[in-house]
Write a protein that binds this DNA or RNA. Sequence first.
RNA 1: GCGGGAGUGGCGGAACGGUAGACGCACGGGACUUAAAAUCCCGAGUCCGCAAGGGCGUGAGGGUUCAAAUCCCUCCUCCCGUACCA
Length: 836
Amino acid sequence: MQYDPASFEQKWRDIWEAKHLHHAQRDDKRPKYYCLDMFPYPSGEGLHVGHWRGYVLSDVISRYMTLHGYQVLHPMGWDAFGLPAENAAIKKGIHPEIQTQAATSNMRRQLKDMGSMYDWEREVNSSSPEYYKWTQWTFLKAYEAGLAYKKDAPINWCPSCATGLADEEVKEGCCERCGTAVTKKGLPQWFFAISKYAQRLIDDLSGLEWPEKVKKMQIDWIGRSEGAEVRFGIDGFDDSLLIFTTRPDTIYGASYMVLAPEHDLVAKITTPQQKEEVEKYVAYTSSRTEVQRQEQKEKTGVFTGAYALNPANGERIPIWIADYVLMGYGTGAIMAVPAHDERDWEFAKAFNLPIKQVIMTAEQAQKLEAAGIDWSQPQEVDKAWSEAFGSLPYEAPYCELGRMVNSQEFSGMESAVGAKAVVAKFESYRVGRAVTNYRLRDWLVSRQRYWGAPIPMVYCDQCGIVPVPENQLPVLLPHVDSYQPSGTGASPLAALPEFVNTTCPRCGGPARRDTDTISQWICSSWYFLRYPSSDCQDKPWRREDVDYWNPVDLYVGGIEHAVLHLLYSRFYTKIFYDLGLVGFKEPFTRLFNQGMITKVGHSGRLEKMSKSKGNSVNPDDLVHKYGTDALRAYLLFIGPPELDAEWNDSGIEGVYRWIRRVWNLITSVKVLEGPEENSEVLKMTHKSIKKINEDLTRLHLNTVVAALMEWANLLISKAEKGLSRETLETYLIMMSPVAPHVAEELWAFLGHKQGIFESRPQWPEHEEEHLHEEEYNLVVQVNGKMRELVRVPKSLEQSELEAIAKERPKVASSLEGKSLRKVIYVPHKLLNFVVG
RNA sequence: GCGGGAGUGGCGGAACGGUAGACGCACGGGACUUAAAAUCCCGAGUCCGCAAGGGCGUGAGGGUUCAAAUCCCUCCUCCCGUACCA
């Protein structure tokens, strides 16, 4: 009997499917386990082995949990709406709908060939009306909750993709999808108020079993910073200028102010003499892309001619505009303290503005301290500092915290204390207050593209913005032949009068539909709630279904979604929680990011596998040559699953040989009934069970395969007189999550009528008694260097062991002529003679 | 700049502070074969040595410890994230 995977792999997949073994049902007897893969977008290029890595991992865990007594939900679907799918369609000149269908059926076939236990009866497709009806419904829910609003503002615009982008979709000033430099464009757009959830999105991370790296990326993205808002008067105007600072303790060092060029006050306060120059600068900055702005090293800016009044000391300081101050953060205006801020320093140097030190350097404070200064006497502090350091050159900004100086009654205070005192004073005069700012900005969700769910909103001249009533959903995406983006900012749907023109749901009068589509990130922000209720017609989900299955117990996918999808899904879940639609605040309890599979591509460098880079390996060919089980096992064996791994064409040979050796063993060994007699086999079996169970839980799947190999090697070496049925069956059960087809086939070979995944035999647990040994290898060291390995009975005491060890030739020669200083004894492990 | 991760044989990688290199790939030798492939067995970090044996070894340099790949400090290289956020 030759190992020929092609002769039986498909058979087992058919059996699993025919018996609906992977169709998870709510079940009160078994505990539930929801194991989810990030659903892929249907690409015409299909799957390469890099995609498989995460899918194999989640499948091994799903199968392990199934055999471990859990009811496992392991679904799969298609993130079919959105730019990736649409761009692929445009490139090929095929309508996205047709292209999506072709791609999903090919990829579904590939996924099935892998033998994953997906519950295909729960498959979802975000581009189907049955699904996007509910995507639109979630949009309406966000609107009802007051979290969706329309705003006409300059947005991130990708000229190549011809659509607006959320901040999260802009990487280093470029479109995350296509790499084109992002520009600004003024368009009325829908936003979701994710910034209102900033603090909760930080706080709730603490309870999640996620990689620290991802948590940190989210925290950094949300960007909390504590400080104060302070109101500066404007000389000659009633208006005032509100700024945000994290360093109120430096306010006595403010020597000028800066407004973002887009700031509302710019036009108003600019003096006639400065008008021309200011307008020129505003026009210049608005014409520049984010990339150009970031690449520029030198600071630029223009004086407005106006002056602000520092509420701390009444000083009259000039107001400038400069593009290093961003309109989107804080109040779009700052007080500049060049002595204690690197950017302000550079600007002040460039434009020759005054620099006034108000925080002592650590060194200065130390010297004054040593001289016995009394920090509680502000005037003395100022005097002493000025005498000691006042005339010295100040060569670089000092941005650390420190003792305040030249700050009136606050001089001598530590920054942290002084900052609070300054804010308290401002609060009492009503010119300032403590404020916490977040970098996270509201989520732009309108897309000027065809391939998405139409935004379910209507504009009526009488009633204004009117949401489409739930009973009129879905707003169907019309099938059109011309779906190319217009590039003007208008969606392709705007060119379809029959789509645009409608009646107002409120007054019945003529009205127009919103012609933008919903960002596909929204489609994927709730799909994990749909699987449990995928058959539900009248609701997006049944409460009892999500209460049973959700949250997801293990979520597997790439790190590239660390801020995008994962942040959005968490936000969406919180909206639903607040609306009482779900009973949990976080969607994914445990997250695992698998590493990339890399290979040398066209560029000559190691790169993430992809067809365009010329380093793609097609799993279909490997399945044909080695069988699915070998490929699954190799993708686990290739390395620690969380790290990147380089594809090696001959690496799969090793796991293929392992599976074939197991095949040859079981199909040829004499099967002994009754308990295992061979003590070495028994010991190895229990040692392996222990190791494999531990490593499965820790997701160390590479060493799970290694342990299975070692175990098999031992069984093969002891097979001459036969092996017990129990040993062989234990092996097959433990092998089955990794290599389910061959495990099933060999299980049947041993005479079982029902397969492993049908009968779900007891998952093996090790028994300590079999690991117990009478003897062990004692490591004997001299000065920490291993000299001998001695086989000794466990019962011996230290003194007896020392005597035995000293007689061993290598130990004896190492000890000769030296005095024994001490002996370290680790029971049942080692003996270390320390000599001098 | 800042933050995070990684550096172990020819290669992928193992290793609760306690036998470094498990498991595999590639390689060498042997068996089988007319021959090759496949398979099976054996070998193998490196240096010296016929061998027995010994020295050196986990990016570099220090430190803690009876004992360090593992803990601490300094530095180097690579990868990832982020970037004028006041």
